[in-house]
């Protein structure tokens, strides 16, 4: 049963890491332009990568 003294803090620590990650994304303007970010991945910036196939 004493394993709980290790596991409980550990699970909270994991959740804190997630919370910190969310805080980081918020601080780095990741929610300012959801539509743009979704579209940006489609922009072909040329040169790099394998040729596209139809």
């Amino acid at each position: 049963m004493s394993i709980i003294f290790l596991l409980a803090p550990f699970s909270i620590l994991l959740a804190l890491v997630g919370l910190a990650a969310f805080w980081w994304t918020l601080r780095h303007n990741q929610y300012d332009d959801p539509a743009g970010d979704a579209a940006r991945i489609l922009i072909d910036d040329g040169g790099e990568g394998p040729p596209g196939r139809l």
């Binding site: 699970s11 909270i12 959740a15 919370l19 969310f22 929610y31």
Partner: peptide
């Protein structure tokens, strides 16, 4: 508000 919501979600779940 978004941060408060995230913290509340974290708190509620844990």
């Amino acid at each position: 508000l978004l941060m408060a919501m995230a913290v509340a979600a974290f708190g509620a779940a844990n």
